[in-house]
């Protein structure tokens, strides 16, 4: 496997479980590690538990997936327990994905999450399917992005922070720059795109209970690659390239665009949990065939 350095964290492979996929419990995350995943990201959690949206909340379509889970989570007390349990059972790094309803809540969740000593805190400011409740995602506003980055950094202590951005809003390069200027240690790009909608033609109603939801999977790969490309151009901090990575070629494109490590989520549906092993081997083979010794040699190569 390809050992990877990221923010002084040692990963056994460059593929990381993306937030929202199989990240609810220690048992679940540990199983993913057994399939070659280099680090796990928890499901996004908040101070208080949330039921999220009704079902259907996750629906595959021909070219990807549409979801409006609605940030359901058991709340920080439960999630801190699961992170600690994972720590006891597994040596792989764990990233805590957090969100808040208000700027202050972002600070409080960060402070509490830091107590569980995750290897990194990922800050979800770009969920596209809680619009009716939260309004426009914080991550689509430059001032809010700056404020949240500051608050989170203040409460995270020595734990590094990555801000998770979406492909929409005032430009992902510009937003990433704001994060960097306000102390972010990394950028996770991108969240799900959209929101989008699917309508059933027999009952003539939107399929998702929430009507709209974020788009993931192969459909958004080009958007994700372009977003990572833009972020790489605008900041020096490392990027967790996420969005539509399913096959080896997708992963390589992300690295060429400038990704440091790779978030993999929806691909678990297409390829099984084995997708982590498959991607790791695929990346290794590509490097060998093309005459490279490490990922570093090709990172951002598409910019040259």
């Amino acid at each position: 496997m390809i050992n990877t350095h990221f923010l002084n964290i040692e990963l056994k492979s460059p593929t990381v479980l993306a937030s929202g996929i199989l990240g609810l419990t220690a048992s679940s995350m540990q199983r993913v590690i057994e399939f070659g995943c280099g680090a796990v990201t928890t499901k996004s959690f908040s101070l208080d538990w949330r039921t999220g949206h009704k079902n259907p909340s996750i629906i595959p379509f021909e070219h990807g997936m549409l979801n409006a889970v609605g940030l359901s989570n058991p709340g920080i007390d439960e999630m801190v327990k699961e992170i600690r349990l994972f720590r006891r059972q597994c040596t792989a790094p764990v990233f805590a994905s957090i969100f808040g309803r208000t700027l202050d809540e972002f600070g409080e969740v960060t402070r509490r999450a830091a107590e569980a000593e995750p290897d990194m805190i990922e800050v979800n400011i770009s969920c596209p399917n809680v619009h009716s409740e939260f309004g426009q995602p914080f991550g689509e506003s430059c001032p809010d992005t700056a404020k949240i980055t500051q608050i989170v950094k203040k409460h995270a202590g020595k734990i590094p922070v990555s801000i998770k951005l979406g492909p929409h809003g005032p430009g992902i390069g510009k937003l990433a720059k704001i994060c960097e200027e306000n102390g972010a240690d990394a950028i996770t790009a991108i969240n799900t795109a959209g929101p989008g909608m699917l309508i059933d033609i027999n009952v003539r109603k939107p399929v998702l209970a929430n009507k709209t939801g974020g788009v993931s999977g192969p459909a958004i790969l080009p958007i994700a690659v372009k977003s990572v490309y833009e972020v790489y151009r605008s900041v020096k901090i490392p990027i967790i390239g996420t969005g539509g990575i399913t096959k080896t070629g997708d992963a390589i494109q992300m690295i060429l665009a400038g990704a440091h490590i790779l978030g993999v989520g929806t691909a678990v549906y297409y390829e099984g949990i084995e997708v982590f092993d498959k991607l790791n081997k695929g990346i290794e083979n590509y490097l060998k065939e093309q005459g490279f010794d490490s990922i570093e040699e090709i990172r951002g190569a598409a910019h040259e």
């Binding site: 996929i21 199989l22 419990t25 048992s27 679940s28 909340s57 996750i58 989520g265 549906y269």
Partner: peptide
């Protein structure tokens, strides 16, 4: 259960994954 397709993690069983 939510997704039915093995990605959301909602029905993962403790102890075994």
């Amino acid at each position: 259960m939510k997704c039915g397709i093995g990605i959301c993690g909602q029905c993962v069983l403790d102890g075994s994954g």
